[in-house]
Amino acid sequence: MTCPRCDHSTIAVMATSPVPDVWELLRCARCGYAWRTTEPARRTTRAAYPKVFQLTQADIDAAVEVPVVPEQ
């Protein structure tokens, strides 16, 4: 499994369902995309994830700071 949004392969388990074995909340270590394993495929699989929301490392690097950190 890779991140649906950025295709990164390191995924962490952020939480599990209070009722055991129903779902997990996962989070990508690179882009921070988070999802519940029971969500529709369009949110949980790389193949079905909409292109318009996909991210690359270059996109992450180019993201602007809001608000800008004040100068030293």
């Binding site: 882009c31 921070g32 988070a34 999802w35 519940r36 969500e39 369009r42 949110r43 909409p50 929301f53």
Partner: peptide
Amino acid sequence: FRLNDGDSGF
């Protein structure tokens, strides 16, 4: 919980 498809998370 997530609201919209393109949201990065919760």
